[in-house]
Design a protein around this nucleic acid. Structure first.
Length: 494
RNA sequence: GCCCUCAUCGUCUAGGGGCCUAGGACAUCGGCCUUUCAAGCCGAAAACAGGGAUUCGAAUUCCCUUGAGGGCACCA
């Protein structure tokens, strides 16, 4: 069996911050490369000067690094086929454009943007199917050419699409796809600013970088016949294509800024784990079987195959991502979890709380919140009462539990305060026996005692288990908070 | 408008002629557990777009319709 060398690339353009749609493409390429012991190349397609965004490159590299999608060739890494920025390969594209010109596969076009626009409006007005270009310059006479040249117009170079016949290419996911050449337009290869278009640069680079498989988003499908024709004009063997199903917004259209398409790094900021993102994105358009949901990166690499990529677009389901992160978070050791939430606490807790936050104190809290948060960032809001001073703010009515009223609640609080004062040192078992017997003595159900104490100590009705929470807070603070609760209740009951 | 692609629960999907009275996951609802909230466990509801054809038999093959998406830039 001939072992083909697998070389794939992720080729983003630095025109914005990559979102899940973009990065999912990177992930599939990476998985395919790693599964096949191949090479994963990162190439920056910075050929559009006008849309260039300054820190987009950092965001691209940052996203990939965060997710551990390491590249074998590319920026910061180098490689035999560099440079890996298209803006540094302009000479190459020029020479190939010239080559096509010489071979009669391309021509110079002097049409102004205004003329092009007019042409398209006219077509639309005549209810013709709108073409991108009417081939006006395809057969210019020498006289016309020198006339344009003398006007100082810088032409673009267009590719000559064959006027008849069909172009068929094979897609690894969709099978054979055929286009009538008459449906294809003479696309621009080299822009008047001297930069190549995607089409030219992409083909030249994929060839020179010996790319074996092109795994790219579905939106490129209709460009592929043009690319096929370009490979043919150059006399190059095209790579194998696999057009990935797209990731969609809630309205089922292509995920974009319109949907508030979240930059991948934002998930990092929100307290998601990279492994969650990898796992989740892998399942957007790929699956192993009818049951497995949670995959380690290694399992993903082991099982990934193009055959199991689906054809249909996938709506990005934030809810499931959230659940999945919770699943991963719960698997973390207490120590790992603490490491993740320390910075969150430092940053997210109200500023008046003294810094640095105590490691030792947080260590006690971590086990109490692990199964109650789904993202790291939630720690700061969920567990803030552990850190706030004892003058908690909350609606005193919360103190009154079901089937309780103000006087009975007051009775509980006062009795609890009294009884707890006699407890030497708070710990779970001691608190439990003490408070349960107190409830008995008072003739209340356990919950009728626990509930007001919970609110008193935390200001909330939903908290980690009461005794553990009180133990972490400690006797002094709990008693102070219970006294405060008593006072609050007395005030509203007059 | 033209071209291309796609079509299973609300969402992500399994399914490649009989194993499907269509399986799993998220979300939803109910129950158990329980000091609250979670987590966990158990259960429920929820889909083969429509119509033809092929076949003993179709979610699975073919055709048409419909719907959806993508593309039609000197953007990628």
């Amino acid at each position: 069996m001939s072992q083909q060398t697998i070389r794939v690339r992720f080729a983003p353009s630095p025109t914005g911050y990559p979102h899940v749609g973009n990065i999912r493409t990177a992930l599939f390429n990476w998985l395919f490369a790693r599964h096949n012991n191949g090479t994963f190349i990162l190439r920056i397609e910075d050929t559009d000067q006008s849309r260039k965004v300054d820190d987009a490159l950092d965001s691209i590299l940052g996203s990939l690094k965060w997710l551990g999608l390491d590249w074998d060739e590319g920026p910061e890494k180098g490689g035999e086929c560099g440079p890996y920025f298209q803006s540094e390969r302009l000479d190459l594209y020029h020479s190939y454009a010239q080559h096509l010109l010489d071979k009669g596969h391309a021509y110079k076009c002097y049409c102004s943007p205004e003329r092009l626009e007019q042409m398209r409006t006219d077509m639309a007005a005549r209810k013709e199917s709108v073409r991108s270009y009417d081939r006006y310059c395809r057969n210019l006479t020498n006289k016309q050419i020198s006339e344009y040249e003398s006007q100082g117009i810088t032409p673009v170079i267009r590719f000559k699409i064959p006027l008849e016949g069909q172009t068929t290419f094979h897609d690894l996911i969709r099978g054979d796809i055929t286009f009538e050449n008459t449906e294809l337009d003479d696309l621009v290869l080299l822009k008047s600013d001297g930069y190549p278009t995607y089409h030219l640069a992409n083909i030249v680079d994929d060839h020179h970088m010996k790319i074996s498989h092109v795994l790219r988003a579905d939106e490129w499908l209709s460009s592929t016949p043009r690319h096929t024709l370009l490979y043919k004009a150059f006399g190059w063997k095209p790579p194998l294509f696999a057009h990935l199903p797209m990731i969609l917004g809630p309205d089922k259209s292509k995920l974009s800024k319109r949907h508030g398409a979240t930059a991948v790094t934002e998930f990092q900021d929100q307290g998601y784990l990279p492994q969650t993102m990898i796992n989740f994105m892998a399942l957007l358009g790929w699956s192993l079987d009818d049951k497995t949901e949670i995959f380690s990166k290694e399992e993903l690499i082991r099982h990934f195959s193009i055959e199991r990529i689906s054809k249909t677009g996938a709506v990005f389901n934030h809810e499931k991502l959230y659940w999945m992160n919770g699943a991963y978070l719960r698997e973390l050791s207490h120590q790992d979890l603490q490491q993740h939430i320390m910075p969150v606490l430092e940053k997210g807790l109200p500023p008046h709380i003294a810094r640095p936050i105590s490691d030792e104190y947080v260590r006690k809290i971590v086990p109490l919140i692990q199964e109650r948060i789904n993202t790291f960032n939630e720690a700061a809001t969920y567990a803030d009462f552990f850190f706030l001073d004892d003058n908690l703010e909350y609606d005193p009515m919360l103190l009154i539990a079901k089937k309780m009223d103000s006087p009975s609640t007051l009775k509980v609080l006062i009795a609890a305060n009294e009884r707890l004062s006699t407890v030497e040192c708070f710990d779970h078992d001691l608190l439990e026996t003490t408070l349960r017997s107190l409830a008995d003595e008072l003739g209340f159900k356990a919950g009728q005692v626990f509930s007001p104490l919970r609110v008193a100590c935390t200001g909330r009705t939903a908290t980690p288990p009461l005794f553990e929470t009180m133990t972490v807070l400690g006797k002094e603070r709990c008693l102070a908070r219970i006294k405060l609760a008593t006072k609050k209740l007395q005030q509203i009951s007059g």
